[in-house]
């Protein structure tokens, strides 16, 4: 039996359904990410799990206990807010101790627990500082410690890294993951950042328009998107409709209405060069012209026009890519197994 069961949860705001019968399960100690664009309902679901908003129907089960109608303080959940929501009038120590004080613990009892958390988030020496005296990253760590100190049954993280700059984000997401593994804490993380979701999660639930589009491990989500939305949201997938493809291209592809191809799985060869390396496991997408190219750090991204079709190709930025620039005529090859057929209804 799963540790958490989000059981056909529905929520409506002013006649608009923002959660449409969401249903998934989470195992104990698992790190699950709810990924989706702004307004897709992921934060609403997180807040419903925390008890901050009521749901219209369905139920939320945590550790075999139905918490659907319990108040936030009865749910034994910890939450980190996007704004951190640290109490400005309290020091780091007082912020972390707040939840324990609410449980009527004495100072003698809660002090070692708070000190242990301060050590865990590596903020020793900052106990008496106030939130306004800390940097964004430090505030985020205090918010995490405050949520963890009560050892909740589930930790909820509502886009906790979105207000930080890229370098600190990367550092902190590894730190969050390390702490979560160390404490074996069941965690639900909400983000709109695909890279963040792919690097931090055991499993990802992709949401769009209040609907769960797909769930799976990061590798499954990335390599086998089920819908057009997931394919486009999770990476810069090439999504082609059947009618966009020529007869010769269609003849090589599996039958379907909608196809998704990862940009890095396509190979390009300058038109004047030999292409003898590509055997029957590769399909020939035809010849095209590089309309635009851009450097994405260690990767070169090409936008190639092949008849009516726009093809995005990512190649490792090495010596080979230097032979291909804007205006170059190229031939495109794709491994047959890397052509995904998508759910046409999406």
């Amino acid at each position: 039996m799963s540790y958490i069961h989000i059981d056909t949860v529905r929520k409506t705001y002013e006649a608009q359904m923002v959660l449409k019968d969401i249903d998934f399960k989470i195992e104990e100690g698992e790190f699950l990410t709810m990924l989706g664009p702004s307004g897709c309902g992921k934060s609403t679901l997180l807040r419903a799990i925390a008890g901050l908003i009521p749901i219209d129907s369905g139920s939320i089960i945590v550790g075999g206990r139905n918490i659907t109608h319990l108040s936030p303080k009865e749910r034994q959940v910890g939450m980190v807010f996007q704004s951190y929501a640290l109490f400005p009038n309290m020091s780091v120590f007082e912020n972390i101790a707040f939840g324990l004080k609410m449980e009527k613990m004495t100072k003698r009892d809660y002090t070692p627990l708070v000190e242990e958390m301060i050590a865990l988030i590596d903020l020793r020496g900052k106990e008496n500082q106030y939130p306004a005296q800390l940097s964004g990253g430090q505030q985020q760590r205090v918010a995490l410690a405050r949520a963890l100190v009560k050892r909740p049954k589930v930790l909820l993280l509502d886009e906790p890294l979105s207000a930080l700059d890229a370098k600190i984000r990367r550092h902190l997401r590894h730190q969050i993951r390390d702490i979560q593994r160390k404490l074996k804490m069941t965690t639900i993380f909400v983000t709109h950042d695909q890279e963040e979701a792919l690097t931090i999660s055991d499993r990802i639930v992709v949401m769009n328009n209040g609907v769960m589009e797909q769930q799976g491990t990061p590798a499954e989500i990335y390599t086998a998107p089920a819908t057009e939305f997931v394919a486009k949201f999770i990476g810069s997938y090439n999504v082609w409709r059947k009618e966009e493809l020529s007869k010769s291209q269609l003849a090589q592809m599996p039958s379907g209405e909608l196809y998704a191809v990862r940009p890095e799985s396509i190979r390009i060869v300058p038109a004047e060069e030999e292409d003898g390396l590509f055997d029957a496991t590769w399909m020939r997408l035809g010849e095209g012209r590089v309309e635009r190219s851009m450097i994405l750090g260690n990767v070169m991204r090409y936008f190639i026009r092949v008849q009516a079709m726009q093809v995005i190709v990512d190649r490792l930025h090495d010596q080979d890519t230097r032979r291909v620039g804007e205006g170059t005529n190229v031939r495109l090859f794709l491994p047959v197994e890397d052509c995904r057929v998508l759910n046409a209804l999406a």
Binding site: L52, P72, K73, V77, F81, A85, F98, A147, K150
Partner: peptide, 20 residues
């Protein structure tokens, strides 16, 4: 000047009542 709603919700999740 403060995120009053977030502060209230954070306090509630941590076990506090609204008045407190």
């Amino acid at each position: 000047t403060i995120h009053a709603q977030d502060l209230m919700e954070a306090a509630e999740v941590l076990g506090s009542g609204k008045v407190n």
